[in-house]
Design a protein around this nucleic acid. Structure first.
Lengths: 144, 144
DNA sequence: ACTCCAATGTTATATCATTACATCGTTTGC
DNA sequence: GCAAACGATGTAATGATATAACATTGGAGT
């Protein structure tokens, strides 16, 4: 069992930044937050992100072109499908996995002879809280 | 029942281009193929794509930042989850849907009070054919 | 000390997408 | 008919995301 190499300084800083953020951050947003630490170029962020993505400590949300720290870093070794729910209003992200979903995708892949390497499973919409707030807002607008 | 307005010239051209292509195309790739038709700026492509995406005639593959013509344009009115399998080697795309997968996502959403608006379901890897070719290639390299 | 290799720094550039504004043609209401 | 309103279009400029290319640094192993 090869021990994972410790994170480098840049990787640590990027991961900390993502962990501290409540919402997903773009690479350039991360860069801006790390200028005080000496970051100057996008590549410093992208290179750190590459490693963090490899090890599963960070996920990329394709639909947002943004990155989040993994909520369950200890759990998945990198080979499990993870799904995300993204609130369009508050930016919140819920990470979850469902073995049944995974089974269905695996079943399709097996039937087609497809070898799955990476998965992007993202649902976008309104979280419970923002939904309620939206409903309340509409009621006000309607003069109720 | 409001009849769908007919496609405009630009929309028709973009859709034809995507339909004719075997692989997903980026917006700029579409632009290049339509220069002969008078296209000059990315916006002409993006505007047409917006409409085609709205009506479900085209899908965007977030993981590739590219677009494909829908394989089943008549079927889904726009409210059904569609999943894609993308071959990293040949660029081929398989569009499929699975009510069980949809059910599981819906179950999660219902439990959390999440209102789903759009979904991005993409699996990336190797298609059956490319897998076979890769295996054959390795065998050759190994001197078998 | 030397080699090797990964991480880093820096500049430039490629790629993807949108803003802003002017123009044209149709439709709609009068 | 005419003008207001609207949607589609054309064009230029810019913003946002990501990578290429190359030089340098700093251990780890020998």
């Amino acid at each position: 069992m090869t021990a994972k190499p410790a994170l480098t300084r840049n990787q640590t800083l990027v991961l900390q930044t993502l962990t501290a953020a409540v919402e997903p951050l773009s690479a350039y947003a991360i860069l801006d937050r790390l200028r005080g630490e000496g970051f100057r170029a996008p590549l410093q962020v992208y290179r750190a992100l590459d490693k963090l993505l490899e090890t599963g400590l960070v996920h990329r949300l394709d639909s947002l072109k943004a990155f989040v720290a993994c909520s369950h870093p200890h759990e998945h070794g990198g080979e499990e499908m993870v799904a995300f729910a993204i609130c369009e209003t508050c930016g919140g992200v819920w990470e979850f996995s469902d073995s049944k979903i995974e089974d269905r995708f695996s079943a399709w892949a097996e039937a087609e002879g497809f070898l799955t390497r990476t998965t992007t499973l993202e649902i976008s919409g309104l979280c419970s809280l923002c939904r309620q707030r939206a409903a309340a807002g509409e009621a006000v607008e309607a003069g109720v």
